[in-house]
Design a protein around this nucleic acid. Structure first.
Ligand SMILES: [Mn+2]
Ligand SMILES: [Mn+2]
Ligand SMILES: [Zn+2]
Ligand SMILES: [Zn+2]
Lengths: 150, 150
DNA sequence: TGGAATAATGATAACCGTTATCAATATGGC
DNA sequence: GCCATATTGATAACGGTTATCATTATTCCA
């Protein structure tokens, strides 16, 4: 689920949300964006931090978390939290919605979308009188690679 | 996702998994089962602890967590972790699989199943060469009650 | 039935991902 | 350059969960 930051509730003087919100530019946020857009998707904060340190050796983990919140807030990045409870991040904005197949053996992520499933979710929600704002579908199992290894 | 406890890896002398596994009977585990089977579903550990204390005033939170792990391990209870990261528990065993509609306003849970969605998930997984072991579908939005209040 | 073996328990420390705090630093408009 | 303030890094705090360990409860069998 994408963390939506409520702009209205921000205290004056607190950090701006992102470049697109009139905030100042910073090399750290740029580094985080570069890591996300160049590396493989579905990285967690620690992995992003390590990758960012190769570009900016002194960057702290708190700054990475702040940048991620920032970038999620303005839609450049999307966050999702799989069953292990550790948030993963992937570039968003130009990328379309998708669900995830997650391998229980190697932990890899495969992106997938079934338009019919998406439609049926709307139907299911409507049947129960719900107005959908978002959904989360994760399928756990063995990826093709790990299936062979058994 | 149900936490599966690997019996083969248990060290000798460590607590047995559950009554059904040859473990000793205990009033605390019984109390936790009673709370789960009598109360509303989708309670978290803290809520279960409070309810259990009304039956057994001295019961500790650690025992509740142990009992829940126990009961999940032998299939009497199922655990799922929604987007807030806090595990919820509901009686399982006799109950069939279902997905959840979760209200973003009041936090209530509605259980729902669409057989077609279930089938299409299998198809989607097969299309990507996955062997499904489990899945998680959560739909977030406004419940009928909260929709009216806007 | 009384112990011995050991499983279960409660208190609490530890853990881990994440967020808050705060003094120091970087940025941008003038 | 100067000032206002946004950003930063170090680190403490947080919240849910798990590990530790001494004490207590349960089971089994002599
Ligand atoms: Mn993805
Ligand atoms: Mn349920
Ligand atoms: Zn795999
Ligand atoms: Zn509601």
């Amino acid at each position: 689920m994408i963390t939506v930051i409520n702009m209205a509730k921000r205290k004056p003087g607190s950090p701006k949300i992102c470049d697109c919100q009139g905030a100042r530019k910073s090399r750290r946020r740029e580094a985080v964006v570069e890591v996300l857009s160049s590396g493989p998707g579905h990285l967690n904060a620690e992995q992003i931090h390590k990758a960012a340190q190769k570009r900016l050796p002194g960057i702290g983990i708190a700054t990475v978390y702040r940048a991620l919140k920032c970038l999620c807030g303005c839609g450049k990045v999307s966050e999702f939290i799989p069953a292990d409870g550790v948030a993963r991040y992937e570039p968003a904005g130009s990328r379309a919605h998708h669900d995830h197949l997650i391998c229980t053996a190697c932990g890899c992520f495969t992106e997938a979308v079934d338009p019919e499933i998406e439609r049926l979710q709307e139907r299911l929600a409507a049947k129960h009188g719900y107005k959908i704002s978002s959904h989360r579908l994760e399928i756990y199992g063995l990826c093709p690679c790990c299936s062979k290894k058994v």
